[in-house]
């Protein structure tokens, strides 16, 4: 008799749970209702179990076992149904929440560093990695540092090629970053390894390739036994880091008053690898900097004995490097700061 009742309860619960899964009402409440109805303190199964006392000792374990089975079965069905319902709900949610992922993201737009800064940072990092310190000097400079101490006395023809802005007879806007060499050598004894990036001024009329304001990066190494081969080796390392492992450099003789011997330095064209193209005007080489061994007189001007020490120096134009890197044709763009230009970097 009780056995039949238990089996009936089990079957009935199973049907109700199955219906529950298909129902569309308040699932949480209905679910609880079903659970209480069968498993609650006043539930049907509990009701049946209360009558256990009426059974014979032989029947009790049999019915007890059956009752437990039915309870476990209901509990499992309930849990399964719950999981199924939650899964259905999740599926529904996912379906409802489909987004158009091709729409633009929220506005977190960062700005950017000026291209001159970006490339300068790269160059600085390369040299810092080689043990160079970054030095600086004034832009409004004494004639002595910009010219005299660099072996360019008054009336020297080299002054013609550097159209200088003067503030007074002895004060000018520096035409090169080389005066920083002198300032550093006056302050510091060898070993010296510095680069000095900065603004320089030349009285050039503005056009696509000339600006009265531009930037140079000066380099100076002074120590015992520094050679011209070291200069070439150092610049080759830098060129490879700046333009890739395949980059080669070429030295051509030149003249600067403050270096001897002097060289103009070309790097193999990074666009065509040296075969000749529009960027290198068919030459296969691109001039990137001027360099040389520090002139012994310049060392003497800074109280460094050229018999004991030697050094090399180099200077490169930042704008030219950046123009070639990004294929920018007009130097004026750097100082116009058109947002449409700035946003490209």
């Amino acid at each position: 008799m009780m056995k039949e009742m238990l089996e009936k309860i089990g079957k009935q619960a199973q049907e109700e749970i199955a219906a529950l899964v298909k129902s569309s009402g308040d699932l949480k409440a209905e679910f609880e209702q079903v659970r209480v109805k069968y498993l609650g303190k006043k539930g049907e199964l509990t009701g049946v179990l209360r009558q256990m006392g009426k059974l014979t000792p032989e029947e009790r374990p049999v019915i007890g076992e059956l009752a437990n089975e039915v309870r476990a079965d209901i509990e499992k069905k309930l849990a399964d149904a719950k999981a199924k319902i939650e899964d259905l709900k999740l599926q529904q949610q996912l379906k409802n929440e489909v987004l158009d992922v091709t729409m633009p993201g929220k506005d977190f737009s960062a700005g950017s560093l000026h291209p001159l800064t970006q490339v300068l940072n790269e160059v600085k990092d390369i040299f810092i990695g080689l043990g160079f310190e970054v030095a600086a000097g004034p832009e409004v400079e004494l004639d002595y540092y910009n010219f005299e101490a660099l072996n360019i006395p008054k009336d020297h023809p080299a002054r013609d090629t550097q159209d200088t802005f003067y503030v007074s007879e002895n004060v000018l806007l520096r035409t090169q970053t080389s005066p920083v060499q002198i300032r550093v050598m006056e302050q510091k004894k060898p070993p010296i390894r510095i680069i000095a990036p900065g603004r320089v001024y030349r009285s050039d009329a503005v056009d696509a390739t000339h600006s009265p304001v531009f930037h140079q990066i000066e380099g100076l190494v002074v120590d015992r036994g520094v050679t011209m081969a070291d200069l070439k080796g150092t610049l080759e390392t830098v060129a490879k880091q700046l333009y890739g492992e395949d980059a080669r450099i070429r030295f051509r003789p030149h003249h600067f008053p403050f270096t001897e011997p002097s060289a103009e330095v070309d790097v193999s064209c990074f666009a065509c690898g040296g075969k000749g193209c529009r960027l290198c005007k068919g030459e296969g080489w691109i001039e990137i900097l001027g360099a040389g061994m520090v002139h012994p007189q310049v060392l003497r001007n800074c109280d460094i004995d050229p018999e004991e020490y030697s050094g090399f120096a180099f200077g490169m134009g930042l704008e030219r490097i950046v123009m070639r890197r990004f294929d920018i044709q007009d130097i004026r763009m750097f100082f116009e700061n058109d947002m449409r230009f700035l946003k490209q970097f």
Partner: peptide, 24 residues
């Protein structure tokens, strides 16, 4: 060296006392 050929100059790495690179 200009008669010898700048292109024949060897390339050697910087040597000597190490220096601490960096900026202010």
């Amino acid at each position: 060296v200009r008669i010898y050929g700048y292109d024949k100059l060897p390339t050697t790495p910087l040597r000597g006392e190490t220096t601490m690179g960096g900026q202010s």
